[in-house]
Design a protein around this nucleic acid. Structure first.
Lengths: 163, 163
DNA sequence: TTCCTTGCAAACGATTTGCATTGGA
DNA sequence: TCCAATGCAAATCGTTTGCAAGGAA
């Protein structure tokens, strides 16, 4: 089992920033009195390597051999409440998880209305600032104390647009 | 039972535009070979009168005496697939329904991160155009054929901000 | 008569949880 | 040793569906 784990981990793409992510997550968990176990590393690694948020089922297809479904959910729950992960719900009601923005940076989502794929997009700083300040004004006008925003851009991904 | 229905309907706020909505919905359903029954009128009426999307449970608390839960879900399903309603999922995974944008106009949502309330907001046309064109560019750059967008403004509603 | 609609109860599926066990610091 | 983490099975809960009865055109 440990060997399987090692194989899976060693097969995962790894960038230099991943090392930093690992370190930050470890520190965060430790400061919450939580351990950074193999299963948790595996989940964080998968999410760090993914171009967009993943559902429990998505993750399960990668980690099922080492992490049973119920443990996967528990892992996701722990990581979410520690602020390491963010959860969101697509239009089908299924939860998807991604690394929290303090780890990945602020970004938005391209959502394919055909195949359901979700892809991260980063907006250039200037545009983000423009959009952000417009949005903050709108929130204020509605009597809200604005804390943030989510933008989902809906359309057809390059694959589905061809069909 | 019919009397209860009449009482509930007659208690609902009704604006001049609601009459138009009724008419448009009736036409849409009819063109799909569907009937605009009392239960469906009731649901459409509730949603038209609401300042934001409602969950099945929200609706149920209003209509439970006349529409059992399973029928409510069926009603919502039929109205959605006829394009009368749009479904969305809050961060808790529970489905919320609202009238489709061709009935209400394009709008966005203020989401209270504390109490979960969702409120519609309309952005003035000029701002919407600016934001919209920025968003379309971003989608294009990501290889998407952009069809629309959703903006959720997150913060604390005026009630929760006081606490 | 035909077909849409309804209601009840049962089924589903994603997610959560109780409990006993394992394992790391 | 102590407490967090795990695995299994069972429970939850929002939502869907099969089937038989009701109702409008």
């Amino acid at each position: 089992m440990i060997m399987i784990l090692i194989i899976i981990i060693s097969c995962m793409p790894e960038t230099s920033s991943d090392h930093n992510t690992e370190h930050l997550v470890a520190a965060r968990l430790s400061s919450h009195g939580l351990r950074y176990t193999a299963a948790r590393r595996l989940v964080v690694g998968c999410l760090a390597a993914s171009p967009g948020p993943l559902s429990a089922a998505d993750l399960c297809s990668t980690v099922a051999e080492v992490v049973p479904l119920s443990s996967l959910y528990r892992t996701l729950g722990v990581l979410e409440s520690a602020g390491v992960l963010a959860r969101e719900h697509g239009n089908n009601g299924i939860a998807r998880y991604e690394l929290a923005e303090w780890l990945t940076g602020h970004h938005h989502h391209l959502v394919c209305t055909n195949c359901g794929e979700v892809q991260d997009v980063v907006i250039d700083a200037e545009t983000e600032m423009k959009v952000g300040s417009l949005i903050d004004h709108i929130g204020d006008a509605g009597g809200y104390v604005v804390r943030g925003h989510r933008i989902d851009i809906e359309g057809r991904c390059s694959t589905c647009a061809k069909g």
